[in-house]
Design a protein around this nucleic acid. Sequence first.
RNA 1: GGCGCUAUCGUCUAAGGGUUAGGACAGGGCCCUCUCAAGGCUCAAAUCGGGGUUCGAAUCCCCGUAGCGCUACCA
Length: 479
Amino acid sequence: MNRVRFAPSPTGFLHIGGARTYVFNWFFARSTGGQMVLRIDDTDTGRNTEESLRSILDGLKWLDLPWDEQHSQSDRRSVHVQAAQSLLAGGVAYRDFTAESDTREDRTDGAPWLCNPGMREMSSAESDRRAEAGEPFAVRFRVPRERPDGVAFKDLVLRKQFRKYADIEDFALLRSNGLPTYHLASTVDDGDLKITHVIRGQDHLANTFKHIMLLEALEYDVPTFGHLPLLLGPDGSKLSKRRHGAVVSVTSYRDMGFLPSGFVNYLCLLGWSPKDNREVLTLKEIGDLFQVENVLRTNATVQFGEDGGADQVDPKALWLNGQHLRNMPVEDLLPFAERALRDAGWWDDAFGTGRRDWFAAAVNDLRSRLNLLTDFQLRCRAYFVDDFDFDPKAKENLNKDGVRDLLKRLADRLQGVSDFTEENIEAELRALAAQEQVKAGLLINGSRAALTGQPVGPSAFRVFTLVGQQRAVERLRRA
RNA sequence: GGCGCUAUCGUCUAAGGGUUAGGACAGGGCCCUCUCAAGGCUCAAAUCGGGGUUCGAAUCCCCGUAGCGCUACCA
């Protein structure tokens, strides 16, 4: 049974790059009948925040791709420390008494930092003595740098990977405050949680060599690794919460009015493709087609503007979402539309009961002109509530010579129509136009303006039936 | 500086030795049409540079160049 994990650290909101990593892991698990583990990598106690944990969980839940298990690294601290201790006892790791600040600054030109002088070679007797004397120390992994070979593994995406021991630095396992580092915690947890495939960003590639050494030293089975290309911002740098701000937050996309399926579809197309020119894909279709081996090795740029409004996101994301909006079964869309109307304060319980069919029909007629769920609020007000403003262009249509008067006469005619269908409405309208010797378009566009306050929208005759006979007549008279 | 990864239209990508280098978004035009969308058709737009290998290279190799990542007691 395959087991994959997504391991965010709660030091910032969930951004698109993280979400894509989650999504790829999820589809990998799904397509191989495996399990998805969510692990909160909260070893950096100083930087963890409740708020970012919430953002991560909110974002992940919204994606609607459920995970099977959830863990927190902080719950397993003693296990991690114990692992470090056993490595220390076995000589695979050693104490480093160098002050943290000294490790940082010692960067002589040319030579990369590999370990602190004197520490690696220190006798265990001296090391024990200093530790007992209360001197603070970090614990480092002893990379077998004297060996001529190195670490090799086969990456699911990047294929053969190799790094010489001589190029790998003695990374820390325990900090001088006694807390485990990411490397230790992550590796021990991957081992204990029986993770079979670690699929993560390419920014972890260098870490993987270290993790494999650790895994082997701890006698865990080494999982298969896959490194995903990175998502870059329009400025060309790796997506980050700090640099790019809330625009890259998953919850921003939710709040903008994206559909989970549309957003997931967009994410999948960044660095992966089904190779048959299809782009609009349902979750099921992606699940059937997804293969990690087909993930690209090249970074992708995510388009977005500075201020993060809906007009600032990648137009393709918008388009894809629109495709989902109009292709999905209306039934599936209804709950989302309801949410949008509730948020706007326009929800009427009748929409879910006695007028449910009407509601479904309205949503269905409106959706081809929308890209986002929030467009229900922005552009569809008059269909759901009676008070609405008139767009300047709608006013123009109403102000054309004689239009208001004609609309009143149209109202009189329509009032008497017994069967308020599109055909009958059209017949009445055209009859009136012929009688008054005006172009039907004048009445058609005027009607739409009177009924919705907008110069644009669905077929005017459709609008009549949507608004209903009574209201339509009132609105024609009121215009 | 060191160690890696990568390089196809503006953007996302297809083509893994032989195609007029394909599709999508965005942009231009046309059709449809009561408006706006949707939809259909269409135009413009790319293989980073240089060397090899080969009858033949976007594709394989080398060198440049560029971008990105890593180089922490962050993850």
